[in-house]
Amino acid sequence: DETGKFLVLALYDYQEKSPREVTMKKGDILTLLNSTNKDWWKVEVNGRQGFVPAAYVKFL
């Protein structure tokens, strides 16, 4: 149950560059965990948590 969690859509592919980031593919649906930083949002994708560039995702 994803109640209270926001979902975001990956607009572009992103390859993680550090262990704190996660890789996503364009079209992936991600669970948004934290968006307090304007540049990097914490998400969960494929069972992994990490950061992606905020400009690469949008709210569903």
Results as ranks from 00 to 15, higher is better:
Tyr12Ala: 11
Gly50Asn: 00
Ile29Pro: 02
Lys38Leu: 08
Trp40Arg: 03
Trp41Ala: 04
Thr3Pro: 13
Gly50Ile: 03
Asp13Arg: 01
Glu16Pro: 14
Leu11Asn: 04
Gly4Tyr: 10
Glu44Lys: 07
Thr23Arg: 05
Gly4Arg: 12
Asp1Phe: 10
Leu33Ala: 02
Ala10Thr: 03
Leu30Trp: 01
Ile29Trp: 05
Tyr56Asp: 05
Trp40Gly: 00
Lys38Ala: 11
Gly27Ile: 01
Lys26Met: 08
Asn46Asp: 14
Tyr12Met: 12
Asn34Val: 08
Gly50Phe: 04
Tyr12Ile: 10
Leu32Tyr: 03
Leu11Gln: 07
Asn37Gln: 09
Gly4Trp: 11
Ala54Val: 06
Arg48Pro: 01
Lys58Thr: 15
Val43His: 00
Leu7Lys: 11
Gly4Gln: 14
Gly47Gln: 06
Lys25Asp: 04
Thr36Gln: 14
Lys17Leu: 10
Lys17Gln: 15
Lys26Pro: 03
Tyr12Trp: 11
Lys5His: 14
Val45Gln: 10
Leu11Pro: 00
Pro53Glu: 02
Tyr14Met: 01
Leu9Gly: 03
Lys17Phe: 05
Val22Pro: 00
Val8Cys: 11
Asn34Asp: 15
Val45Pro: 00
Lys25Met: 09
Val43Trp: 00
Leu60Glu: 07
Thr3Val: 12
Met24Glu: 00
Gln49Asp: 06
Leu33Gln: 03
Thr3Asn: 15
Ile29His: 05
Asp28Leu: 04
Phe59His: 10
Ser18Ile: 04
Asp39Phe: 14
Asp1Ala: 14
Thr31Lys: 13
Asp28Ile: 03
Val43Glu: 00
Tyr12Val: 12
Leu30Phe: 05
Tyr14Leu: 01
Arg20Met: 13
Gly4Pro: 15
Tyr14Asn: 00
Phe51Lys: 02
Glu21Cys: 06
Pro19Ser: 13
Gly27Ser: 03
Val22Lys: 01
Leu60Trp: 11
Ile29Val: 12
Pro19Met: 09
Asn34His: 07
Thr31Pro: 14
Pro53Gln: 02
Ser35Thr: 11
Glu16Trp: 05
Leu9Val: 15
Glu16Ile: 05
Met24Pro: 00
Phe51Val: 07
Asp39Ala: 10
Gly27Met: 03
Thr23Ile: 03
Trp40Met: 06
Asn34Gly: 07
Phe6His: 14
Gly50Lys: 01
Pro53Ala: 02
Gly4Met: 12
Ser18Thr: 12
Lys17Tyr: 04
Val43Asp: 00
Ile29Cys: 06
Val22Ile: 15
Val52Tyr: 01
Phe6Tyr: 12
Ser35Pro: 07
Leu32Ser: 02
Tyr56Ala: 12
Leu32Pro: 00
Ala54Tyr: 02
Asp1Ser: 14
Leu32Asp: 00
Val8Gln: 01
Trp40Leu: 04
Gly4Lys: 14
Val52Thr: 01
Lys38Pro: 15
Val43Leu: 03
Glu2Val: 14
Val8Asp: 00
Ala54Phe: 02
Ala10Lys: 01
Asp39His: 14
Trp41Met: 05
Gly4Ala: 13
Val8Asn: 01
Val22Phe: 09
Trp40His: 03
Arg48Trp: 03
Pro53Leu: 03
Glu44Gly: 06
Asp28Lys: 02
Phe6Asn: 12
Ala55Asp: 11
Gly27Asn: 07
Gly27Val: 01
Val22Ser: 02
Asp1Met: 13
Leu7Cys: 10
Phe6Gly: 12
Pro19Tyr: 09
Gly4Glu: 13
Gly47Ile: 03
Phe59Gln: 11
Val8Arg: 01
Met24Asp: 00
Tyr56Pro: 00
Val22Leu: 14
Thr31Tyr: 12
Lys58Gly: 15
Thr23Gly: 08
Gln49Ser: 11
Met24Ser: 01
Tyr14Ala: 01
